[in-house]
């Protein structure tokens, strides 16, 4: 059975002005994948994510999400794509002047016509899904960093997205919380069929959750390797990928 393509990146050049980070990248993310974007520090992973989420325009090339080229499509269509994608930012990016429940209700207020009471129910449900049951009326400043990330995830899930993007989900989390977040990602993927794109360097996560990946390389400014991370470890295409996946062991 051939899988449906959800994100199709064609001849994409990533960079800022004259400063190119990545040349002519081509890759596809299939529906239902857990897709890992990995690579050394400063190779442009976060920039790639900013392009996928439409925060940064590509220098060249196309990003086609669910059949819509987000750089050239009319604003209305891009908006529809955005409604169907959730993003978990590195710090959670919760709005500090609102309670957790209000944070989650914000996208609902914008894009749905549920009654306020239903929205509250939904917010409580999403919080419970990420293990924050009963924290509805807490402000972001009153919870820990790991909890903020989970609350951020609850907000990302508010509109039942088809794609969820994660920027370094495990950064700043203790091993257990990080593991729990991984389990949560897998659970989401399995039970809701959500496509998931993760930027991370956490090797344990990469192997635990990823079933497809690209490896960005700063020196050659290309995608140096691609495929299931576990397969890449078995048959590393070159030294750099091998060292990355084994924490710097020399072959």
């Amino acid at each position: 059975m051939k899988k449906e393509v959800q994100i199709d990146v064609k001849d994409l050049t990533v960079g800022y002005g004259d400063y190119v980070l990545l040349h002519d990248a081509n890759y596809q993310v299939n529906k239902g994948d857990i897709f890992i974007i990995m690579g050394g520090s400063g190779c442009g992973k976060s920039s790639m994510l900013r392009i996928l989420t439409g925060l940064l325009p590509p220098l060249k090339g196309q990003v086609i999400i669910s059949g819509v080229d987000i750089a050239s499509a009319p604003a209305k269509e891009v908006q529809k794509i955005r409604e169907k994608s959730g993003i978990l930012y590195q710090s959670g990016a919760l709005f500090s002047s609102m309670t957790l429940a209000e944070n989650i209700m914000l996208p609902l207020q914008q894009y749905s016509d549920y009654s306020p009471a239903t929205m509250r129910e939904l917010a409580a449900l999403k919080l419970a899904l990420v293990g924050l049951k009963g924290f509805d009326d807490f402000y972001p400043s009153e919870i820990s960093g790991g909890m903020k990330k989970r609350a951020g995830l609850a907000r990302a899930l508010a509109l039942d997205p088809q794609i969820v993007y994660f920027d370094e989900p495990s950064a700043g989390l203790d091993p257990i919380s990080s593991r729990n977040l991984d389990d949560l990602i897998i659970e989401l993927n399995r039970s809701l069929g959500t496509t998931i794109v993760v930027v991370t360097h956490e090797l344990a996560s990469i192997f635990a959750i990823g079933n497809n990946s690209i490896f960005l390389d700063a020196a050659t400014k290309t995608i140096m390797a691609r495929g299931d991370p576990k397969e890449l470890l078995k048959n590393p295409p070159n030294q750099a990928v091998y060292e990355f996946l084994t924490r710097g062991e020399k072959k």
């Binding site: 900013r50 989420t53 439409g54 925060l55 908006q79 955005r82 409604e83 994608s85 993003i87 930012y89 590195q90 710090s91 990016a93 919760l94 709005f95 500090s96 914000l106 996208p107 914008q110 894009y111 907000r155």
Partner: peptide
């Protein structure tokens, strides 16, 4: 500060 915390990015990607 909202910019630093990526809250502005979040607003933008939420389409607000």
């Amino acid at each position: 500060t909202m910019q630093v915390n990526e809250e502005l990015d979040a607003l933008e990607t939420m389409g607000l």
